[in-house]
């Protein structure tokens, strides 16, 4: 745990290196070895990188737990559906509209419940998920419970198939989500959010505008989740409430950062890569119920045993190694 300034160099290298690796891997996938399975699995993992990073901006940095990731994700998808049906809007417009809508949704939930204790915010997010799902189920325009099938338009110029285009968009989205979460962590906002997580009353008393920061975090986090949901319609060629509002999104978006480590931007990425891949393998090879069980068990295990996630374990190992020979242990 050295000073922030000194760790920044390595941090930068990890980020830039990671981005390049992802883009190279994506290009390889898109042009060369593409089997449908690997392609789909990678798409889902990328999607989870966006969701987990977005969740962590509020949950990890500020300590406010969002149980309703699926609400934001699905609302993103349905906003895109609306934009397609209404204006025949292109993908980019769909994504922007989805991010705007879910950002506003975040603001609304935040204004209602962020003045209260954390658990009320959490309950409010569950509530919004169920209320929205009920509204969609009862709205014929959005296909109701049966869902709606959509035709894909032609892909845009350099791309030969719509799949590749969506994949490329998701790669960009994952990189931007990680970049945004990293920027927030290292900016004044991040320090303020961390102060809120440590002790909200004290933070307010040393001049941190706590409500404003929490609202910023909720809006950014919500907008990113919505953006991740926007391509869902075109990816599946179909949208239907039960799978769009699936609890799995909410649990995974929360479990991934906690498993990876919530204190830094890289934690959710580690968690999403790890848990996302395990999920993809288990779902196919064993069963989807078992996959869900694994997520739950891992979540509880990490919360109880290693609250700082894999990142915390690595740090502990590192400080132990560097302190070897030094007989005296550190704090605690």
């Amino acid at each position: 745990m050295s000073g922030k300034m000194s760790s920044m160099g390595g941090n930068n290298r990890i980020f830039v290196g990671g981005c390049i690796a992802v883009v190279l891997a994506a290009i390889a996938l898109m042009t060369g070895v593409r089997t449908d399975y690997v392609f789909n699995a990678s798409y889902v993992v990328l999607q989870f990188i966006v969701l987990a990073s977005a969740w962590n901006i509020l949950g990890g940095y500020a300590g406010y737990v969002n149980f309703g990731t699926s609400a934001f994700f699905a609302m993103g998808g349905y906003t895109a559906l609306f934009m397609i049906k209404m204006f025949n809007a292109p993908l980019l417009v769909q994504i922007i509209a989805a991010a705007c809508c879910t950002g506003v949704l975040g603001l609304g939930i935040g204004l209602i419940s962020l003045r209260l204790r954390g658990i009320f915010f959490s309950i409010a997010t569950v509530a919004v998920a169920i209320v929205l799902e009920t509204v969609i189920l009862n709205t014929d325009y959005f296909g109701g419970a049966k869902g709606l099938q959509m035709m894909r338009p032609e892909p845009i110029a350099p791309f030969t198939s719509y799949d590749t285009m969506l994949f490329f968009v998701m790669v960009l989205m994952a990189i931007s989500a990680v970049a945004i979460s990293r920027y927030i962590e290292q900016s004044w906002i991040g320090r303020g959010l961390r102060a809120i997580k440590d002790n909200e009353e004290a933070a307010e008393c040393v001049g941190v505008p706590t409500l404003k920061l929490k609202l910023i975090a909720t809006v950014v986090s919500g907008a990113l989740m919505g953006a991740a949901g926007a391509p869902l319609v075109m990816y599946m060629r179909f949208i239907e409430p039960v799978s769009a509002f699936s609890l799995n999104y909410s649990v995974s978006a929360l479990a991934m950062p906690i498993i990876g480590g919530t204190s830094s931007w890289i934690g959710p990425v580690i968690g999403a890569l790890l848990l996302g891949s395990v999920q993809q393998i288990v779902t196919v090879t064993i069963s989807s119920e078992l996959n869900v069980l694994i997520v739950g068990v891992l979540l509880v295990f990490f919360v109880v045993v290693a609250p700082d996630g894999i990142l915390g374990l690595v740090r502990k190992l590192r400080t132990k190694n560097s302190a070897k020979g030094d007989a005296k242990g550190g704090a605690q």
């Binding site: 949950g59 300590g63 406010y64 737990v65 149980f67 954390g118 658990i119 959490s122 997580k197 440590d198 002790n199 609890l247 649990v251 929360l254 479990a255 906690i258 919530t262 119920e289 078992l290 869900v292 069980l293 997520v295 739950g296 068990v297 979540l299 509880v300 919360v303 109880v304 609250p307």
Partner: peptide
């Protein structure tokens, strides 16, 4: 004390999820 907020919530959420999945299994 201190960090019970996030961890406590995540803990019970996880427990709820495990119970649900076990019932399904």
């Amino acid at each position: 004390g201190s960090d019970a907020g996030l961890r406590g919530l995540a803990f019970f959420f996880g427990v709820a999820f495990i119970i649900e999945v076990c019932l399904i299994l």
